[in-house]
């Protein structure tokens, strides 16, 4: 039995998840006030009614739109700033400590400023998502540029490569695996930023409905919505991971 599980870790993993769900089901059915928690079976059954709640599909679309735009911007800004900082010794020594300092600040403290500047609409959520997502990407790009083996640069130079060719054919492919792991962290950051901003103040989007369901003591719908959100996050993460395996297939 033990040997079978050691050889099939997926089965063990599935078992743990199943046990957790059963524990949750039992606790929610017989031990905890239904105002606070709902059993997973009921949450699953209620998924339809979540979608049927007026404006929830639109809210999901809006949040997804905010996530996509924020992620795209975070990647673009992250790559540009990462290259600017990482490509020169001067840039690295001068700006990297500043990047690390900014990354260390809990941004939630300045969320009200974002609302002040960008309003209570999607712009503030996108902006807050971008500032959360771009830092891991900047750091990943800097690391990807810096960890290049010097011999590869020397070798390219000896064969007559121009600066642009070195950037395009040596620095860029060397950065790709690191960029993708940065993008996965960035995706988590973007989710955090967008949802935090939505929870803080929102007229649409998922954040509005999570606070509404909570205030109405409707844990079934709340957990259903959270489940949908989790599925969305897992799907996005998986997408980036697929890209990572594809573009880094040369690493054994």
């Amino acid at each position: 039995m033990k040997r079978y599980l050691l050889r099939h870790p997926g089965v063990a993993r599935l078992g743990v998840i199943l046990l957790m769900l059963i524990g949750w089901e039992i606790a929610a059915r017989w031990f905890i006030d239904p105002m606070f928690i709902s059993p997973p079976s009921r949450v699953l059954m209620a998924l339809g009614s979540v979608f049927a709640t007026p404006n929830v599909p639109a809210a999901l679309r809006l949040t997804f739109f905010e996530l996509a735009v924020a992620f795209a911007l975070a990647v673009i800004i992250g790559v540009v700033l990462g290259l600017a900082v990482g490509l020169s010794k001067f840039g690295n020594k001068t700006f990297m400590p500043i990047v690390l300092l900014l990354y260390g600040i809990p941004q939630i403290t300045i969320l009200p400023i974002f609302i002040l500047y960008f309003g209570i609409g999607p712009a503030a959520k996108i902006a807050f998502g971008v500032t959360h997502g771009m830092f891991p990407i900047i750091m990943a790009v800097v690391a990807g540029v810096q960890n290049i083996k010097p011999i590869l640069l020397t070798s390219a130079r000896s064969m007559g490569a121009s600066n642009w060719q070195i950037l395009r054919h040596v620095v860029y492919p060397n950065m790709i695996p690191s960029l993708f792991s940065g993008m996965r962290l960035g995706m988590t950051g973007v989710l955090l930023g967008v949802l935090l901003a939505e929870l803080y103040v929102s007229t649409g989007g998922i954040g509005y409905f999570t606070s509404m369901f909570t205030q109405n003591f409707d844990p079934t719908k709340l957990l259903g919505l959270v489940g949908i959100l989790a599925a969305m996050a897992i799907a996005l993460n998986e997408l980036v991971r697929r890209g990572e395996t594809h573009f880094a297939r040369w690493r054994d």
Partner: peptide, 30 residues
């Protein structure tokens, strides 16, 4: 590059390219 080619001690092939792509890339540099 038109007169001199180098071979280094360390593996200086580009790891993200196949052997064929490595050679094509070297010639495109040259």
């Amino acid at each position: 590059p038109n007169d001199i080619a180098f071979i280094f001690q360390e593996n200086a092939l580009f790891p993200w390219s196949t052997i064929h792509e490595n050679m094509i890339l070297g010639m495109s540099f040259q």
